[in-house]
Nucleic acid binder design. Structure first.
Length: 273
DNA sequence: CCAGTATCCTGCAGGC
DNA sequence: TGCCTGCAGGATACTG
C-alpha cells in the first residue's frame, strides 16, 4: 500500500505522538509477517524504553529507542499503523501493539502480512538484509546526477527499474506511473535508451511528484490513512494512475492501462515516448 | 550480473 | 444469495 509519501506522512504523524513517550507494554500476535516478529526480543527491547523521533528510509520506518536500537517497520501492501486510545477495540489482523505511557497505543495492522516489524540492535542497520541494499533516497538532491548511471546499460523497462528499491528507494507503483507521465517517458522504454535530457526530466518528475504527494499527505485510494485516521489528499491530483479510459490531462487521448513487469501501469501513448 | 516469473496472503469488486 | 475470477499501493526467491 504505502509508498514514500505515505510512509513519510505516517512518520510525521507518529513524531507528534511518540517522541518522548515510554513504551509501557508490548503485545505481539502469533502470526509471522514477512519475517517472524520475534516476540521475546521485541518485548524485551521496547518495554520500559523511551521513543525518539522516527526516521524513514525508502519505504521503511525506524522507530528509534533512547539508548540505541530501532523497531524496523515496513507496511508491505496492506499494512497500516494506527494510534488509538488503549481501550478502543482493535481491528482484525492487529499483529503488534505498543502501549504507551500516554493514553494511546500504536497498532500494526496488516491483513496480507507482506509487511515487516523487527528489532534492529544499535548498529545493525548496515547489516540488515532489507536495509543494506536500498538505493538512493529519491528526494536526495543528488538524484538528477545519479539517475543516468543507474539506468545506463539497462534493457529492462524504465518503470521496472524505478520500482527496484536497490536503485532508488521509495518509488512505488502509483508514483512510478505518475512520474513517467510527467516526464513524457514511456514506461516500457529500456532504461539505457532514454536520452540524457529525458533522464534529467524524469529525475525532476520523480522528485516533484513525490514532494507534491508528501505535501498532500499521500494518496488514499481505498484504505490508506495516517495513524490518526486522516486520509491523504493526493488521489484527486493523480494524472494517470487508476484512470484507464479517461482523457489524458495533457492531450485528451485515452489513458491506457497495461502490465509492465507484472504490475498495472497507466500511461498516455501520445504524450509518452 | 541481468531480466522475467512465481509466490507469499487476505479482502473486495464485479460477473454470472 | 453464492461462487468464481481478477485485482490490489511490495519484496524476494527462483529460473534461464
Amino acid at each position: 500500500m504505502p509508498e514514500l509519501p505515505e510512509v513519510e506522512t505516517i512518520r510525521r504523524a507518529l513524531a507528534r505522538h511518540l517522541v518522548g513517550r515510554r513504551v509501557a507494554a508490548v503485545e505481539v500476535g502469533p502470526k509471522p509477517l514477512r519475517r517472524p516478529l520475534g516476540q521475546p526480543l521485541l518485548t524485551l527491547a521496547l518495554t520500559g524504553h523511551t521513543l525518539l523521533e522516527p526516521r524513514r528510509r525508502g519505504k521503511f520506518l525506524l522507530l528509534d529507542r533512547a539508548g540505541g536500537g530501532s523497531l524496523l517497520v515496513h507496511l508491505g501492501m496492506s499494512g497500516r499503523l494506527q494510534l488509538a486510545a488503549c481501550g478502543r477495540p482493535r481491528p482484525p489482523h492487529t499483529h503488534l501493539v505498543l502501549r504507551l505511557d500516554s493514553d494511546l497505543e500504536l497498532r500494526l495492522v496488516d491483513p496480507r502480512r507482506f509487511g515487516l516489524a523487527s528489532w534492529l540492535a544499535a548498529g545493525a542497520e548496515a547489516v540488515d538484509p532489507s536495509l543494506r541494499q536500498l538505493g538512493l533516497e529519491p528526494l536526495d538532491p543528488g538524484l538528477p546526477a545519479a539517475l543516468p548511471r543507474l539506468l545506463a546499460g539497462r534493457r529492462a523497462a524504465v518503470k521496472t527499474l524505478l520500482l527496484d528499491q536497490r536503485l532508488v528507494a521509495g518509488v512505488g507503483n502509483i508514483y512510478a506511473s505518475e512520474a513517467l507521465w510527467r516526464a513524457g517517458v514511456r514506461p516500457t522504454r529500456p532504461g539505457g535508451f532514454i536520452s540524457r535530457d529525458r533522464v534529467a526530466r524524469l529525475a525532476g518528475a520523480v522528485q516533484q511528484v513525490l514532494a507534491d504527494a508528501v505535501e498532500a499527505g499521500g494518496t488514499t485510494l481505498r484504505d490508506f490513512s495516517d495513524p490518526l485516521g486522516e486520509p491523504g489528499l493526493f488521489a484527486v491530483r493523480l494524472d494517470v494512475y487508476g484512470r484507464a479510459g479517461e482523457p489524458c490531462p495533457s492531450c485528451a487521448a485515452p489513458v491506457r492501462r497495461s502490465l509492465v513487469g507484472g504490475r498495472s501501469t497507466f500511461w498516455c501513448a501520445r504524450c509518452q515516448r
